[in-house]
């Protein structure tokens, strides 16, 4: 199950994580986000223990959203050791996300 990331726990769960993190920026009203969401959760299940998968609602967490300049949703940010190492904007196929993830494992 993907972690619910908020402005409050972002530092602890994402930046301080010792594993790579995929963070999905989404909103309830966004159709493409609903396509990407299950895919991201599936990847989380497949890579349990290797990768942390989190979801951040852009409506409820404006601070983190603004900090990373998220203007398009869905956006996936790939974090490693607290730094953004990759980014994927828009609804894409699962293998595209997995392909990017493999490069950072």
């Amino acid at each position: 199950m993907a972690l619910e990331i908020t402005d409050a726990n972002f530092q602890e769960l994402v930046l301080n994580s010792d594993k790579p993190v995929i963070l999905d920026f989404w909103a309830e009203w966004c159709g493409p986000c609903r396509m990407v969401g299950p895919v991201v959760e599936e990847i989380g299940r497949e890579y349990t223990g290797k990768v942390v998968v989190g979801k951040l609602n852009v409506d409820h967490n404006p601070e983190v959203t603004r900090k990373f300049g998220i203007r398009n949703i869905p956006t996936l940010l790939f974090f490693k050791n607290g730094n953004v190492v990759d980014k994927q904007v828009g609804a894409v196929a699962k293998q595209v996300i997995v392909g990017k993830l493999q490069g950072h494992l």
Partner: peptide, 30 residues
């Protein structure tokens, strides 16, 4: 054809691709 993403509306941009249903529901311009 394939709806891929929502992008924040930039002022000055053409308004014809704005998601008006979303604006009606949430007052957000995307």
């Amino acid at each position: 054809v394939e709806f891929a993403e929502h992008r924040l509306y930039n002022s000055g941009e053409s308004i014809k691709h704005i998601d008006w249903k979303l604006f009606g529901r949430t007052d957000k311009l995307f």
